[in-house]
Design a binder for these strands. Sequence first.
DNA 1: GCGACAG
DNA 2: ATCTTGTCGC
Length: 220
Amino acid sequence: MKYRALHSWDVKPEEARQLQNELRSQVIQTDRFGTINTVAGVDIGLKKDTAIASVVVLSFPELQVVDSVVTESPVRFPYIPGLLSFREIPPLLTAFTQLQTIPDLVIVDGQGIAHPRRFGLASHLGLILDKPTIGCAKSRLWGRYKEPDTEQGAYTYLTDKEEVIGAAVRTRTNVRVVYVSIGHRISLDSARTWTLACCQGYRLPETTRHAHNAASGKTP
DNA sequence: GCGACAG
DNA sequence: ATCTTGTCGC
C-alpha cells in the first residue's frame, strides 16, 4: 500500500506541534467511504529501542483475519503526550507498505481529534493514508465527560469547552469505557457504530485485539 | 508553581 | 508501552 509524504519526520517537539496545527484543517469529519468489506487494526509494541509495528486486516462482518503484517524498526522519537503519532507512524507506514490487502477502514489504538490540537494519531495516519480512520483509545488524553450507563452501547460525549471531540463508549456491559473519536473521513456517529460492530464480547474491538497480539508476540 | 498526560 | 502472580468479582 502506498501513502503520501506530508512532511519530514525528522522534527523537534516544537516543530511537531506546529505541523499538527497546520494539518488539522485537512481532517474530514464526515463519512466519505463506500462499502466496508475489510477493517484493519494497528498497534505498536516495544522491545528495547525497537518498535514492532503490526497491521491486521479482518473481513467484515465476519471479523476473520485476511491479512497481517509485522515489521520492526528503530524508535526515533520519544513518547510525549500529544505527539504520539510522530513516534508510531513511521514504523506503521513500514508495515502498511508490505500489506497485500488494502483495508476499507482502520481502527487505531489512540485518539483521533480528541486531542489538544485535534490531530491525534488516528487523524494523522488517516490523512497520510487517505483512508477512513477511527480513534479508539483505552484511556483519555483530552476532554471531559460524564460516565455513561453501565449497559453495552451506552455512551456520553467527550467535550472540550462546548465542542464535542469524541465519545466515551461502553463496548460491553460493566467494563470501562473506550474513547472513540473521528480519525479521518468519518463522522463521530459512524465511528461509534463501527467500533461497536467490531466488538465481539470483549472491551476492545477485534481489530485492536489482533493487532495488539501480533505486536507483542502471541498466537491466540 | 501544581496537576494532567493516547502509547 | 513495560516490569509481573495471584486474585477478587461478575
